[in-house]
Simulated assay, not measured.
Amino acid sequence: MADPTRVLVPTFGRPREDEALAYALEAYPDAEVIVLAVVTPIGTPLSEGGVLERDDERTARARDRAAELLESVDAGAATDRVRIEVREGRPANVIPTYASDEGVDHVVMYGHGTETSGLVRRLLGRTVATTVVERTDRPVTVLG
């Protein structure tokens, strides 16, 4: 399999997303890397909690969060091949749809909650990473 030319790294405000971005930049040095900042709708379990914020404020905050993520990995010269996109919706829905619609070759994400026990997963529900793997037809690297 050839190296991907377009790699998607989703971010929705969870810990260790910087590790996924750093991995994508290092593992695929010739690929365009798209940092997808997902703005979770208000009232969903992953919502940022900005009930009184307007949508444009939440979108701006998501874009800023993605830019800070890029700065945190010290991407250096690699920033010329990184693009930030913002979409609203549930991450488990937005990520596979974006990957398919935008011609992404590979998805790299941190497996939030993959280390939890079966009992905890049954109580809290499926992880976003698990759902993305099942819903996308693109290869997905889940770091954990």
Rank of each mutant, 00 (worst) to 15 (best):
A2M: 10
A2W: 06
P4N: 08
T5A: 12
R6C: 05
V7S: 02
V7W: 00
L8V: 06
V9C: 05
P10S: 09
P10Y: 01
P10D: 00
T11G: 04
G13M: 08
R14K: 10
P15W: 12
R16V: 14
E17T: 08
E17C: 04
E17A: 15
D18K: 14
A20F: 06
L21Q: 13
A22V: 03
A22N: 12
A22E: 10
A22Y: 00
Y23N: 06
L25D: 02
L25T: 09
E26A: 06
A27E: 10
A27D: 07
Y28R: 08
Y28F: 04
Y28T: 11
D30I: 09
D30C: 05
A31G: 07
A31Q: 04
E32A: 13
V33N: 01
I34Q: 02
I34R: 09
V35F: 01
L36V: 14
V38Q: 11
T40N: 05
T40Y: 01
P41A: 03
G43T: 02
T44G: 05
S47C: 06
G49K: 03
V51P: 03
L52F: 15
E53V: 07
R54T: 14
D55Y: 08
D55T: 05
D56Y: 11
D56F: 11
E57G: 02
E57Q: 09
T59R: 07
A62W: 02
A62G: 15
A62I: 06
R63H: 12
D64K: 07
D64Q: 13
A66Q: 10
L69P: 01
L70W: 06
E71R: 04
E71T: 11
E71C: 07
S72H: 03
S72E: 05
V73E: 07
A75R: 02
A75P: 10
G76K: 07
A77N: 12
A77E: 14
A77K: 13
A78F: 10
A78H: 02
T79H: 13
D80A: 15
R81G: 03
V82Q: 00
V82E: 05
R83C: 11
I84C: 15
I84W: 00
I84T: 15
E85M: 13
E88N: 04
G89R: 01
G89E: 04
R90V: 10
P91L: 12
P91V: 12
P91Y: 01
A92Q: 14
A92T: 04
P96C: 12
P96W: 00
T97F: 07
T97L: 12
Y98A: 03
Y98V: 08
A99W: 00
A99D: 11
S100K: 09
D101M: 05
D101G: 08
E102N: 12
E102H: 12
V108A: 08
Y110P: 05
Y110A: 05
H112Y: 07
T114A: 13
E115R: 14
T116C: 11
S117T: 11
G118L: 09
G118M: 06
L119F: 15
L119P: 11
V120Y: 06
R122P: 00
R126S: 15
V128S: 04
A129V: 13
A129C: 04
A129Y: 03
A129E: 03
T130P: 03
T131V: 08
T131G: 01
V133Q: 04
E134D: 07
E134G: 06
E134M: 11
D137N: 15
R138I: 14
P139G: 10
V140T: 14
V140Y: 00
V142C: 09
G144Y: 10
